[in-house]
Simulated assay, not measured.
Amino acid sequence: MIAFDQTKPLLKDGKDIQYQGQTGIGPFNKNNDPSSANIGVYTFDKDNKPVFDHTQSGDVPTD
């Protein structure tokens, strides 16, 4: 695996690459757009510090 900034020369040479970011890779639709997403929902405690509450998942509507 290589870092994202190391892909530029590969792209210039016409290489077919698949970048995987730090959060991983999710499913893509036929247009190569993300088809779903997950987010973490946080609340804040009495000291105004974020506290994980839950994960929310969603799907992108199809055409």
Rank of each mutant, 00 (worst) to 15 (best):
G40N: 03
N31F: 11
N48I: 00
N48K: 14
Q22L: 09
K8M: 06
P27M: 15
G24M: 00
I25V: 14
L10N: 07
Y42M: 08
T23N: 10
P9G: 06
Q22D: 10
P34S: 06
D47Y: 04
P9I: 01
S35R: 02
L10P: 03
K30N: 10
P34H: 09
G40D: 02
Q18D: 09
G14N: 08
I17S: 07
K12T: 12
P27I: 15
Q20S: 05
G24A: 02
F28D: 15
G40W: 00
T43F: 02
G26W: 04
Q20P: 00
S35K: 04
N38H: 08
K15Q: 15
D16N: 08
N31L: 09
D13I: 01
I17V: 13
G26E: 07
G24Q: 02
L10R: 04
F44Q: 12
G26S: 07
K46T: 15
V41L: 00
Y19V: 12
K49V: 00
S35Q: 07
K12R: 15
Q22Y: 06
S36V: 05
D45W: 02
T43I: 04
P34A: 06
F44V: 03
D33N: 14
D33H: 11
N48M: 03
Q22I: 06
Q6T: 10
A37C: 08
D33L: 12
Q22V: 07
K30P: 03
N29V: 05
